[in-house]
């Protein structure tokens, strides 16, 4: 039992790391722009495809393919921010519709380019096994956990220790006050979209080789990431980090006790429970002016 538990905790930490990347990107964009970007999952998926493309067609280096994918998605994010979301500023309904529309456009675009079938990406880290006691995991598991750990730490330091990072947090807390201290909101929008999309790409590029790369691979990470930021408290960065990791571990461990098919049910039951018991989320604060 202890073996099985350890196995699921490691699996859960790996998946939780992926959810963390998605949640952190979404919460940054949401906090600064007040856009709940439902297209974040398809951007994650595109990150997987672009990484695959760079790896198989151009670079033959997984690291460079990941970086290339992050760069491409940053540019796509920039274009979406400029071309779509900035124009719909302060129009929540249109933003939701636009982000749902983007899912259709991007998903079908990917199918048009790469076809509907899953792609496989063979890299050495998925073949190397790391034994832990009687268990063994792919090296990719630990590569994911380590990379996400380093990335999230870097983002955290950026947000808390740098001038621009503090300005990003300031803008997400009080946009009007940010304007009167001279923070240019448009620059903050660009920064949050850029970081958010790069994180989504990193997620897709890390998960792709372990499972497969297919047009709906971002759907579940999107839903789990969304659940993570709601559980963590909308707009809370520590909430998104801990929420993402927590969801990964809870759903993995739950498979020990209940059928695997109910894994997603467990996550959303936990979401409902949090909403009932603590509607502002674990790390959220009640917003002034809201009941």
């Amino acid at each position: 039992m202890a073996q099985a538990l350890l196995e699921q905790i490691i699996n859960g930490t790996m998946m939780g790391s992926i959810y963390m990347l998605v949640a952190l990107g979404m919460v940054l964009i949401y906090g600064v722009m007040h856009v709940l970007n439902f297209a974040h999952g398809v951007l994650f998926m595109v990150g997987g495809y672009v990484c695959h493309f760079f790896f198989t067609q151009v670079l033959d280096s997984y690291l460079l393919a990941i970086l290339g994918s992050m760069a491409v998605l940053s540019v796509i994010g920039l274009a979406l921010e400029r071309g779509v979301f900035r124009r719909l500023r302060d129009n929540l309904r249109m933003q939701v519709i636009a982000s749902l529309g983007l899912i259709l456009v991007i998903q079908n675009g990917v199918i048009a380019i790469w076809g509907p079938n899953a792609l496989q990406m063979r890299i050495t880290t998925t073949d190397i096994r790391v034994p832990i006691g009687e268990l063994s995991f792919t090296l990719q598991h630990f590569l994911i956990i380590g990379t996400v750990g380093v990335t999230v730490t870097a983002i955290w330091l950026f947000l808390t220790r740098t001038r621009i990072g503090t300005a990003l947090r300031a803008t997400s807390q009080n946009a009007e006050a940010a304007q009167v201290v001279g923070i240019d909101a448009n620059r903050m929008y660009v920064a949050s979209f850029l970081i958010g999309c790069a994180l989504a790409a990193l997620g897709g590029a890390l998960l792709g080789p372990l499972f497969l790369i297919f047009p709906t691979m971002g759907d579940l990470p999107l839903l789990k990431g969304l659940a993570a930021i709601i559980i963590g408290g909308m707009g809370s960065i520590p909430g998104a980090i801990i929420g993402g990791l927590g969801i990964g571990i809870v759903e993995a461990v739950s498979t020990l006790y209940i059928p695997t098919d109910f894994r997603d049910t467990v996550v959303f039951a936990a979401l409902i429970a949090v909403l009932l018991l603590r509607p502002q989320g674990l790390f959220g604060v009640r917003v002034r002016g809201e009941a």
Binding site: T166, Q173, V181, V285
Partner: peptide
Amino acid sequence: SIFPKLTVAENLRMGGF
């Protein structure tokens, strides 16, 4: 017009952004 979840010191530093 303060930033509620920045520290007092961070609020001041943002004043000099």
